[in-house]
Amino acid sequence: MSDYNFAYLDEQTKRMIRRAILKGIAVPGYQVPFASREMPMPYGWGTGGVQVTAACLTPDDTLKVIDQGADDTTNAVSIRRFFQRTAGVATTEATEEATIIQTRHRIPETPLTEGQILVYQVPIPEPLRFLEPRETETRKMHELEEYGLMHVKLYEDIARHGQIATSYAYPVKVEGRYVMDPSPIPKFDNPKLTANPAIQLFGAGREQRIYALPPYTEVVSLDFDDHPFQASKAAHDCDLCGAKDSYLDEVITDDAGGRMFVCSDTEYCTSRRAAGHKGRLWAPEPEGVA
């Protein structure tokens, strides 16, 4: 433990953020402005998520941090250490053991349960932003539920690529009301957003917005009648654990075209291998390939 206040932020700031979170939970999908603080890390490294996590943490919590599904990459490791130092909370890599999971760009494969909180790091919270640059106008569009523009984006996809090519940050509609950017998770994860027993919180530090999905919220991915939404993944099994149903990363293994597909959720993959599942390229010392 150090001389920082518990979880780095002062109590007034945490109260302010908690109010924003509660408002976000009360109005699912609505982007609540909040007074984002300077954090001891650069924008784009999860300052929004860190502030939300800090406001939610209690000394009894167990924290898990993932970056693109992995517990052991720089971003995940540094944020986990940050809270170990400033809050002294227990940390874990096991999804089912965690009470708070901060994530960048993935939803864990292991189904979440009631009582868990999933905190997303969000770069651009406004789903309409790339089509309508004016904040005043996008706010009005949300207010008046004018979401035709969102479909224009999907239309453009099909016109150009023959299908909806948006593969991450795929827009969703929350409880039939607000259109929301689920952060840059792969659209493979979109079906996990809906009716999820966990609380899902989204924090955008630079853009100063917090939004939320309370447990069991209905979240529908936008689509066309003749081009329905499809959660896609690479057409392979995990080469390490053999999972057929998890989201895969492609790993180049040599400069002769060799490659393998592995679970992007490292904890899921590890625990499956521990349970005896084997993939095509599994060898007793998996660290060598990963």
Partner: peptide
């Protein structure tokens, strides 16, 4: 946005959902 998307926007704005 493409010409087609420009023309289609108003249709989508009033609920057209068939590409």
């Amino acid at each position: 946005v493409s010409a087609g998307g420009n023309v289609g926007e108003r249709l989508m704005a009033v609920g057209a959902r068939h590409y």
